[in-house]
């Protein structure tokens, strides 16, 4: 027979099992002998990331250099903050920066509530087939490439053939060449974004709604609440944490305007309202070859974006226990 209880009286001698260096090496040897496969599995991705994502970060130094194609990144002479000085006195860049902020803000104001409203509405649809069909259709534009979206927008808003001007014609309004008018660019761009993403964006909120306990609704019904009241008093408060997280993510991504679509839709006549930092970088760097200057603009954009993402993640951690990644 073995009595264990008396051991508890021996006030626990702090049993720190510190390994000696030799033991550690033996342990590491065992570890890699047994587990080398998982390191092998990770290796290709690590190499890839160094080659395609971290090496360009090293290449960012050209933002502080007089970059010459022939000398390469490392050997080009330093230029200090020259490019940034040029940048911050460049009207086009400043305009592009504010355009980025403005377009993002409009996206936030109109594009953010859209999927929430859509999800709340889907939740009220009773007929399952109708709901499923509608969902299938509204998710679809998310999977369509920006080139096609641009093609559709260009065709639909065309002054001669476009359906929009055709309808305006019925109402007796002269046709407008929308895509050449700076004042129309942002509404069209933001509207297109809602059309393309509101449906897909609603998935997250629908999942949150699905997680609400049915007994909450049942007890509300017993209390005599209407569907309208339940939407406001139960559904919306229940998905508020999700809304908050998605909002924080959106704020973190303010600098990421989908510039692909802008490149496809804008033209010199609408640069005034349409040009954003990334399109500016694209024109200056890839089209005009001012690599160092464009890299400086890109770096500025990336740093602002990074700070915003970090703030967003901190906020998300504080408010929701969940980190975004």
């Amino acid at each position: 027979m073995n009595t264990g209880s008396d051991k508890r009286h021996v006030t626990t001698v702090t049993t720190t099992r510190k390994r000696t260096l030799k033991q550690k090496l033996i342990w590491l040897g065992d570890h890699f002998r047994n587990e080398w496969q998982i390191y092998l599995m990770l290796l290709p991705t690590i190499i890839w990331m160094i080659l395609f994502l971290y090496k360009p970060m090293y290449g960012l130094q050209i933002a502080f250099k007089d970059y010459s194609i022939f000398r390469g990144v490392a050997n080009s002479p330093w230029a200090g903050l020259e490019h940034f000085e040029t940048l911050f006195t460049n009207d086009q860049f400043i305009r592009a920066f504010w355009n980025t902020i403005k377009i993002s803000f409009l996206n936030l104001l109109f594009g953010f509530p859209a999927p929430i409203i859509l999800a709340l509405m889907f939740n009220e649809v009773m007929n399952a087939t109708y709901k499923k069909t509608a969902q299938t259709i509204v998710y679809l534009p998310h999977f369509i490439s920006s080139v096609i979206i641009a093609g559709i927008v260009i065709t639909a808003f065309s002054p001669s053939v476009g359906i929009v001007n055709t309808v305006l014609g019925w109402l007796g309004i002269d046709s407008i060449y929308f895509l050449t008018k700076p004042e129309w660019f942002r509404p069209i761009f933001v509207g297109t974004g809602i059309w393309q993403e509101a449906g897909f964006g609603s998935i997250v909120f629908l999942a949150a709604i699905a997680g609400v306990s049915p007994s909450l609704y049942e007890s509300a019904v017993v209390d005599g609440a209407s569907r309208w009241q339940m939407m406001w008093k139960i559904t919306l408060p229940s998905i508020l944490p999700t809304i908050l997280i998605m909002l924080i993510i959106r704020i973190g991504n303010v600098m990421e305007v989908s510039f692909e679509l802008i490149i496809l839709l804008y033209q010199p006549a609408t640069y005034e309202t349409a040009d954003v930092v990334n399109t500016f970088v694209y024109r200056q760097g890839l089209q005009s070859g001012r690599y160092d200057f464009a890299a400086a603009a890109g770096l500025f954009n990336a740093v602002v974006a990074f700070v915003l993402v970090m703030i967003a993640n901190t906020l998300s951690r504080r408010y929701s226990r969940t980190s975004l990644w």
């Binding site: 027979m1 073995n2 009595t3 264990g4 209880s5 051991k7 508890r8």
Partner: peptide
Amino acid sequence: MNDGYIEQIGSPMDLFMNPVSTF
């Protein structure tokens, strides 16, 4: 076992008839 220690080892009847501790 209790709290990471062995309290008692024995046959089922031994444990039943002669527990070494209140635990």
